[in-house]
Structures are given as C-alpha cells and as structure tokens.
C-alpha cells in the first residue's frame, strides 16, 4: 500500500513542516517514507511545496507528477496542482484563502475554512495542522497517535506547550471532514 501527497503553499505557512511531520510519523510506524521539497529560488518567499510518500514497500519514485492527493494553501498552489492530481484523487483546499472551486468532477474535494478554524483556536499559524487533520480524516496512511508522537519531536522546550493546541487543530480538521 502506498499513500502519496503534495503539500503546497507560501513559504512560511508551515507547508514543509507538516510534510516532514507526516514523514516522521510514518517512520515511527516502521513504514517506508520519503519527503521531497521543491527547492531553489522559488523556495524563498514564493511558493513552496513538498511531496510525501508513505508506503509499506520500498518507495520507487519520490517525485510525484500525478499525486494521489494534494493539500493546497493558496491560489497559486491550487492552480498548479488541481490539474495534476490523479483520477479519483483527493484535493484539500483552504477555502478561507481560496475562493476557487475545482472544475474536475472525478476528484474528492474538501473545501475547509482552515484559516478561520485556526483563528478560532487562537492563531492562524495552526492552519497547517487543520489542513493536515482534514487530509488524515479522509485517508489513513498513518494513525493519529503516530502524528501526535512525531509532534513531540518538533515541539520541544518552550514550544512543548504548543503540543496540545496543535493536537486540537489536527482534530478540528478531522472533525470537519467527518461531520460532512
């Protein structure tokens, strides 16, 4: 079984971080994982994206030209990845920032006002966790417990206090897709 996803947005939106969180959680479960960033000048200030693969078997290509899923944080990323998600794939959209709707009928679409939800939790910085939660509510490459465990690797020292609110943000994303 292989799950793969492209996560895309502006630099600074925590795009790379949730990708790495997903990869780390997969590794904690003993799965094969790859995390591949888009890099170069466009990484600085412009759009940033990473491709994450979680699989039971050794991973062949870490490069995703037709990902099974995409999580998009802004309009540019929507325009770039909406056309290339594979047939029947999943597209998770932050509808607070992106007012566009997909014209593709074959996609499983999640329009989630992730930034609004994050603000309710106290800070727009949790948007990435809300979106990751929505993705995890739809597909289950790894357990939420593993994601929680991986969180504690990232949030140490003073930041450890933020673990709980990040967990709530993840859950808010899961709840949003499950309510529907």
């Amino acid at each position: 079984m292989e799950h793969n996803v492209v996560i895309a947005g502006f630099g600074g939106q925590g795009v790379m971080l949730i990708g790495e969180l997903l990869a780390r959680a997969g590794m904690e479960e003993g799965k094969e994982v790859t995390w591949l960033p888009s890099y170069g000048p466009e990484q600085r200030g412009g759009t940033a994206n990473c491709a994450v693969v979680v699989a039971d078997e050794p991973i062949a290509s870490p490069l995703l030209t037709e990902p099974q899923a995409a999580i998009v944080f802004n309009r540019q990323s929507f325009d770039k990845f909406e056309p290339v998600v594979e047939q029947g794939g999943l597209l998770v959209v932050d509808s607070t920032l992106i007012d566009k709707k997909s014209s593709r009928a074959d996609l499983d679409m999640v329009y989630i006002p992730a930034t609004d939800i994050a603000m309710e939790l106290g800070n727009s910085k949790f948007t990435n966790m809300v979106l990751l939660g929505a993705y995890l509510g739809k597909v289950n490459p790894i357990s939420m417990a593993s994601v929680h465990a991986a969180l504690s690797v990232f949030l140490t020292g003073k930041k450890a206090a933020l673990i709980e609110v990040n967990k709530r943000a993840l859950q808010a994303g899961v709840d949003f897709v499950n309510k529907k």
């Binding site: 790495e20 990869a23 590794m27 094969e32 994982v33 790859t34 995390w35 591949l36 960033p37 890099y39 991973i59 870490p62 490069l63």
Partner: peptide, 10 residues
C-alpha cells in the same frame, strides 16, 4: 543530484 541531496528518508 539535488533530488537525493534535498529529500529526506529514514
């Protein structure tokens, strides 16, 4: 190449 250099794997 940059792909192997920049990606993360266990």
């Amino acid at each position: 190449d940059g792909l192997i250099g920049q990606m993360m794997e266990p």
